[in-house]
């Protein structure tokens, strides 16, 4: 056997997959060839070191505790995120309904144009301090009432402003700003608002944000 042939058998030999006859051939070559003997010895000894050398470091004893605490806080955070997402989605839906209603109002000028309104009344949007405790406790239904009342008053106001010749853009800006005020109040009185993560000063022991895991092929590093 030549060195070239012998070296092709090294992997199979090291994997323990060499058949008896070939293993004997390789052994015979190994005895008489110092280069192959040395090469194989280096591969064998490095494999042995990798397999048997003890790790110089170990995980901290409380690793499992810390890890499970992280999983708890993560699931808690995901529940909070879901609740907050649903709440915001509700607010956005309400805003969308109001906005659509106004767009509808644009399309029906005749209805309002015909109405006789003396003066433009200020919007009666109560501040959080002025709000009655009952309204705050009723939560979503109270907010709906507020929006409905505001919507009615705004319709009247719009008609009045159209009569007085105020610009359409200005009217729209005012309306949007009032609508946002109402939504802000609704958020302040929401029972879930106090339970957002960090709202009560609690800082959960959380793991670092996981890096995005690519599904790329392995590349040489």
């Amino acid at each position: 056997m030549r060195c070239e042939q012998a070296r092709q058998l090294f992997d199979a030999y090291l994997d323990g997959e060499l058949s008896g006859a070939l293993a004997t051939e390789l052994g015979a070559h190994r005895v008489k060839c110092p280069d192959c003997r040395r090469a194989l010895a280096l591969m064998e000894v490095s494999g042995h070191v990798i397999a048997s050398d003890r790790e110089p470091v170990a995980l901290h004893g409380d690793f499992a505790d810390r890890l499970l605490a992280c999983t708890d806080s993560k699931s808690l955070r995901s529940r909070d995120r879901l609740r907050r997402g649903l709440y915001i989605a509700g607010l956005l839906a309400a805003a969308a309904v109001v906005a659509l209603a106004f767009l509808g109002a644009f399309d029906r000028p005749a209805k309002f144009a015909g109405e006789k309104v003396e003066t433009a009344r200020p919007l009666a949007v109560p501040s959080p301090q002025e709000q009655s405790p009952e309204a705050g406790n009723r939560g979503a239904s109270a907010n709906e009432d507020l929006l409905e009342e505001w919507f009615k008053e705004t319709q009247d106001n719009w008609a009045a402003k159209r009569q007085s010749g105020e610009s359409l853009q200005r009217q729209f800006e005012l309306t949007i700003s009032q609508m946002l005020d109402i939504l802000r109040q609704a958020k302040d009185t929401s029972p879930g608002a106090d339970h957002f993560p960090g709202a009560d000063g609690e800082v959960p022991a959380s793991p670092p944000e996981p890096a995005p895991t690519d599904d790329e092929d392995v590349e040489d590093l």
Partner: peptide, 18 residues
């Protein structure tokens, strides 16, 4: 690196559980 290895280990478990 001990610190990096522990962080990666933790991240791997968290991803696995998730």
């Amino acid at each position: 690196n001990h610190h990096d290895a522990e962080e990666i280990c933790q991240e791997a478990f968290l991803k696995a559980f998730a």
